[in-house]
């Protein structure tokens, strides 16, 4: 019962904030909506036995990525909403409608086809468990990710530096 109430609260937060990211004009407020969204998601991750992923979600997304977004918004001084006025044309209502249709179709599909949650070990999402699989079965993807991050670092520096 308590779990359901918590889920519904978090789901409401996610729904409202994901609409907010898109509908709000001010980019700083969009970013704040997204932060709230990630928080609620982290709570849901706990429900799905993913403690480690929930902590990483907050550290990486809320603690680093969104701070980077805010930093860029402030650096380019895009805070004033009038800067990039969104033109009201036919595209907007059509897109909203299509998005709604997408959700309805998917929801229908999900309700028709889906099975139940399987029983699982209590320590499924702990660092020990995730780490064990990350460094055995998934070691090549993991190492590839590190190369990707290295490339990203080099790319970001090349991009941001005026003169190398």
């Amino acid at each position: 019962m308590f779990g359901q109430i918590l889920f519904i609260t978090m789901a409401l937060v996610i729904v409202v904030t994901s609409i907010g990211v898109v509908a709000v004009r001010n980019p700083v407020r969009s970013a704040l909506n997204l932060v709230a969204n990630f928080f609620a998601l982290a709570v849901l991750y706990l429900f799905l036995y993913a403690q480690f992923v929930a902590a990483v979600q907050i550290i990486v997304y809320a603690g680093a990525i969104m701070v980077l977004f805010l930093f860029t918004i402030m650096l380019l001084n895009l805070g004033s909403p009038s800067e990039l006025s969104e033109r009201g044309d036919l595209k907007r209502p059509v897109t909203w409608g299509l998005a709604l249709l997408f959700v309805i179709v998917l929801a229908g599909g999900i309700f028709v086809r889906l099975g139940e949650a399987q029983p699982t070990a209590d320590d499924l999402g702990t660092v020990q468990m995730v780490g064990k699989f990350l460094f055995t079965d998934w070691v090549y993807p993991f190492e590839l990710t590190s190369i990707l991050l290295l490339i990203a670092i080099v790319g970001a520096i090349v991009m941001a530096k005026r003169r190398l």
Binding site: I14, I19, A99, F102, A107, I110, L114, E116
Partner: peptide
């Protein structure tokens, strides 16, 4: 607490947004 399908609908909604 809740069936898996609820999470998936939520995920679909986020994706659509």
């Amino acid at each position: 607490a809740v069936p898996i399908s609820w999470y998936l609908i939520l995920s679909a909604f986020m994706f659509a947004m």
